[in-house]
Nucleic acid binder design. Structure first.
Length: 466
RNA sequence: GGCCCGUUCGUCUAGUGGUUAGGACUCCAGGUUUUCAUCCUGGCAACAGGAGUUCGAUUCUCCUACGGGCUACCA
């Protein structure tokens, strides 16, 4: 049987990193076993849910490359269905109305010290309840949890998990305004969507027995459950805003590729069973398996993310990277340069780049004359005779007929030998003149690409200034 | 407080009843390079603690500690 899984974010914020990982494992699981991946928007919290977040989440998901097999299901459009199920639960005695107020319950709790609902409305007479109802008193609806027995399931990741019914609260399935709560909607939807495997965060482990009780009360088939370890911040606490960027769109803006995020996140709590660390979405989909998922929560490490990013970017052919860079930031290359030139620029800087946002900075001097010269570098490399050295080199250079890397290289050697100084005495100032700083690609390659005219202008500029 | 889950280098992880406990990131040293980056070589660095089972436990069991989750008219 082909599995049907779902990703069910609540639109109370943009898609966060933990959500991406949950979606990712669901997706990979579905693809691996030729199943379906569905989407559900859990917007029963009217206070915090916003349509703009739904839009953002959908956008992020599509940016990452997730395709869902059916229209996303919005919980807000299913009130009637929930009501129907709640009434059924009421009719069958599996749920009951509770007219206790929050304040009243709080008082009891303080007195008794017990965290469980005291079940004060669990066994009231029909007359009493009807009277309240007739009076239109506010009330919630609670599940009638069995007093004895226990409920257990085989978690696809964590193994057997056992819970005593006596530990489970008569939890609320409908609020006083009649709206259903999470534990109810999730069961109804998973059932109606024919979900076969519920793969979600570990924070839902203790919700699972509650939900199973609803399935049982309704006589529905219980799906398989698999819980995923949490992702933590560097301080070991659950990943949150405090730990810096957390939303998917922020990572996009930072210059990470979808594949990078997917690659890194996949490695958080899962491994392919070999030493492969850099792989794409397809690889994950072919090799994913829930039993290689860890039980231990993992710390999100930006440094390693950056490494994965640099590896991924390096893999991309230069011509394609030009497109990607332009889409990320059209201003990275100025205007009016040939595609051929851009490709060569990217080729020269590709291995010095961690994220897409590094490109512009690293490519600056390919499109502009240096606007300033690194002070420390000047101090370090600009000696008494540097102007003379540079002058004589530029004279030779202007005579050079065939402008290519090896000729320039030869000329540099020739020049250095003629005046009998170390190669660095020429190379370093050359680099400062051309780029404004002391790092970057090979000088001959750089000069070849920049062209004779540009190089001569830049030499003139720096000689004028020093 | 109660219940549940977890604990291998700083971080992500592999692994087995007997291993020099392996890899990756970071960091350090060396090589390559005019420089930076890449790359190559090497190095630092871990089985939370205590009992028990066993000829032998990092591996199995229990306890403790620590961390996380749930305990909402949030999801």
């Amino acid at each position: 049987m082909n599995p049907i899984v779902r990703f069910a974010p609540s639109p109370t914020g943009q898609l966060h990193i933990g959500g991406v990982r949950t979606a990712l494992f669901n997706y990979a699981f579905a693809k691996k076993f030729k199943g379906s991946f569905l989407l559900r928007i859990e917007d029963t919290d009217k206070e915090r849910s916003k349509d703009e977040y739904t839009e953002q989440i959908l956008e992020s998901l599509s940016w990452l490359g997730f395709e869902y097999d059916d229209e996303p299901l919005k919980q807000s459009s299913r009130s009637d269905r929930y009501k129907e199920v709640i009434n059924h639960l009421l009719d069958t005695g599996n749920a009951y109305r509770c007219f206790a107020s929050t304040e009243e319950l709080e008082k009891i709790k303080q007195k008794s010290g017990s965290y469980l609902y005291p079940r004060i409305w669990r066994d009231r007479s029909k007359e009493e309840v009807d009277a309240k109802l007739l009076n239109e008193d506010e009330h919630t609806i609670r599940m009638r949890i069995p007093v004895d027995g226990d409920i257990s399931f085989e978690d696809l990741v964590y193994g057997e998990i056992n819970t005593k019914c006596s530990e489970i609260d008569d939890f609320i399935i409908a609020r006083s305004d009649g709206s259903p709560t999470y534990n109810l909607t999730v069961v109804v939807d998973d059932n109606d969507m024919n979900i076969s495997h519920v793969i979600r965060g570990e924070d839902h482990i203790s919700n699972t027995p509650k939900q199973m009780l609803i399935y049982k009360a309704l006589g529905w088939t219980i799906p398989k459950f698999g819980h995923l370890p949490m992702i933590l911040g560097s301080d070991g606490k659950r990943l949150s805003k405090r730990h810096g960027a957390k939303g998917t769109s922020e990572y996009k803006d930072l210059g990470y590729l979808p594949d990078t995020l997917i690659n890194y996140l996949a490695l958080l709590g899962w491994n392919p069973g070999n030493d492969d660390e850099i792989f794409d979405f397809d690889y994950l989909q072919e090799n994913f398996s829930l039993d290689k998922v860890n039980k231990k929560s993992a710390v999100f490490d930006t440094i390693k993310l950056e490494w994965v990013s640099s590896q991924n970017i390096f893999k991309i052919p230069a011509a394609k990277l030009v497109d990607i860079a332009s889409e990320f930031d059209p201003t990275w290359c100025g205007e009016g340069h040939s595609l051929e030139y851009l490709v060569k620029v990217i080729e020269l800087i590709k291995d010095r780049i961690k994220t897409l946002s590094d490109i512009k900075e690293n490519a600056f001097y390919f499109f502009n004359h240096p606007t300033e010269y690194d002070e420390a570098a000047m101090k370090k490399c600009w000696g008494e005779n540097t102007n003379d050295i540079l002058n004589s080199f530029q004279e030779e250079l202007s005579q050079l007929d065939y402008w290519n890397s090896s000729n320039i290289d030869e000329l540099i050697d020739k020049c250095v030998n003629a005046i009998n100084v170390g190669k660095g005495k020429l190379m370093q100032p050359l680099r400062i003149a051309l780029t404004g700083a002391l790092k970057g690609p090979s000088i001959p390659d750089l000069m070849t690409l920049l062209g004779k005219e540009t190089c001569l202008i830049r030499f003139k500029n720096i000689l004028k200034n020093s």
